[in-house]
Structure formats: structure tokens, C-alpha cells
Design a protein around this nucleic acid. Sequence first.
DNA 1: AAACTCTACAACCGCCTATCT
DNA 2: GAGATAGGCGGTTGTAGAGTT
Length: 278
Amino acid sequence: MGRQPCCEKVGLKKGPWTAEEDKRLINFILTNGQCCWRAVPKLAGLLRCGKSCRLRWTNYLRPDLKRGLLSEYEEKMVIDLHAQLGNRWSKIASHLPGRTDNEIKNHWNTHIKKKLRKMGIDPLTHKPLPADQLPKEKQEDQQVSPSSETESSSMESTITEVNEELNPDEDPLMEVINNGFCTDEVPLIEPHEISLVSAPCSSSSTPSSSSSSIIQEFDFPNFDWQCDILNSLDFWDGDFSSSLDLLINYDSDRNNVTPIPGIVWDQEPIRDSLFELL
DNA sequence: AAACTCTACAACCGCCTATCT
DNA sequence: GAGATAGGCGGTTGTAGAGTT
């Protein structure tokens, strides 16, 4: 007797999500908030399992996600946190607002692991690799100048630097975390909260073809004014999932917009345009 | 231009844990 | 306290697109 499946899999759709499915899921969550994932597919009219919906939302559709490659600083943080926490991706992700565990895990497996090995560092232990496991060029380096400072020692110093940077008193990221926000604690979207689209990011990875241009036809319940704003922003290119990275509170009574704590307001043109519009 | 290989990442699977009854 | 259930996590797989032959 195996474990019961999380849901009835017969007749359920698998594989990449379509724009239509994304639209339904976003619509449902913006209307109802995050609740009982098991019930979401039925209520949202999706032929998916609840788990799949949760994953799609948390890893791809959530409005506070940053898209694109990890910055050098984020990468350093991941390396350092991995040295401390191991493969606890969700814990690592909680220190990097706007990044998901899946994203970090993928980045680790495809980029950082290789990079560390190339530098002669064991990605598992974060210690220098034994000589016989070093990449060829590295072995040659060691033969030529065994005493010279290697990349691995510079990486070790990088890790130390990051450790120092992680001082909560000084690090703005840690400040954000200490102020009560981390990606583990993403606030539920309430009707008075809106998502806003930023300028397209040149460094962003290829956006899922299935998810582009959703927002142009997206039906924001009770948010007519928001669509007006989106249409007014001249940098809005209609790319929804790859560039939704700002989340703001809108107080309709006071006609006031405030950033949700933890959201990085580093895209001044957007912020300024928004405040002008309001 | 076609076939093949590699890479990146979205999505799935199964297990674990927390919570509820 | 035990069993059931839902949510969360980490490992793995599938696949599309890019690069190479």
C-alpha cells in the first residue's frame, strides 16, 4: 500500500502551463487570496492538481518575484548560505527576497556548482577539492605556482566578506528580513493591494512563452483603476510574468500608495510614474 | 539544412512535517 | 495519542531552445 496521491490524477493536465491557465489562477488568487490549494483547481476551473497550482503560483506567478539571473551579490549570498545551511533551498531563498527555492536550486545546479568546481572548491563541503579531483587547468596551475594565491582562496575571502556583509546591523537585506519580511512570509494579496509591472529587464531569462501578454487581457476584479495605470505607463510592454516585481499597497480612501515592507523599490522611473499618476 | 548534443529551467514526484479531528 | 490531510521541501526529470558538427 503506497501513500495516497495528493489528488485524483485521472483527467488532470500535466506539463507546461498555458497563458489561459495562468490567467485563471492569477484571477482566482487575486480574488480569493491563497487558501486551500486542494480546492483551488476546482474553484478556478483548472484541470490541475492543487500542488501544481501552488508551485506555479509560488515559483512563477507571484507578483513579488524578481526575474532574471541572480546578481553577483545574490550569488555570493547563496554560496555563503549554502555553506551554512546545506541544500535547504527554502531557507536560503528566505534570505533573498523575490527569489524562490526552485530558482536558487536550479541556479546552484547549473551555474554555481560548476563555477566552484572550476575554482577548485568542492560545492558540497565548500573546501578545496583534493588534487586528483581538480579540473585539469587547475592542476596545471598548481604545478606552476603552488604557492600563488588561487581563485579558491579568493572565493574563501569572498565568503568571509559575505559573512561580514551578513551582519544584520549593516546589511540592508538582513534589515529587510529583520523588519519582518522574507519570501517565506509573502503577504497575501488583499483587494487593496495591487501588482505593478516594471520595465523589461534585459538580463532576464527567457520568459515562458505561455505567460506573456496575459495582463493586457487580464480581468482584475475591482481594480479598474489599476488597468488604467498599467495602460498609462509607457514602459509597460505587456510582459507579465517576467517583469512583475513590484507590489504596493493602495489605500483608496487616502489615495495613497505605500510599498509593502521588503519590496525593493529600485526602479525609480516606475515609482515616480506611479506617484505622478496618483 | 539537418541531426545531434548540451544547457537551463519549469514542472513533477515522493517524502516529511504540521495541523486538525 | 492516532490517523488523516494539506502544505512544504528537496531531488529528479522532461523539454525547449541554443550551440555544434
